[in-house]
């Protein structure tokens, strides 16, 4: 397993199992690297955001998305 990288800026509400297990080192999680996506929004608690859009790394690193909240 790789050493933790500094991950790209993301919405503060993005949650995933990889983050719960590896904290800021989540990008090194092999499941994540394999394309599996166990993401949820911290505001809604589910796999859709407050704008009813899907939740994921790419989708939740987009500052132009209405519900995006940086740290």
């Amino acid at each position: 397993m790789e050493l933790p990288q500094v991950p790209a800026p993301r919405c503060t509400h993005l949650q995933s199992k990889a983050m719960a297990v590896h904290g800021e080192g989540f990008e090194g999680d092999t499941d994540l690297q394999g394309g599996a996506a166990d993401f949820a929004c911290g505001r809604t608690g589910r796999a859709l955001g407050p704008d009813d859009g899907t939740v994921g790394l790419a989708r939740c690193c987009d500052p132009d998305r209405g519900c995006y909240e940086e740290y």
Partner: peptide
Amino acid sequence: SPGYTGGATINLNL
């Protein structure tokens, strides 16, 4: 199928 949203269901790299 991962349900109504999500990603890959196997790890293709492996």
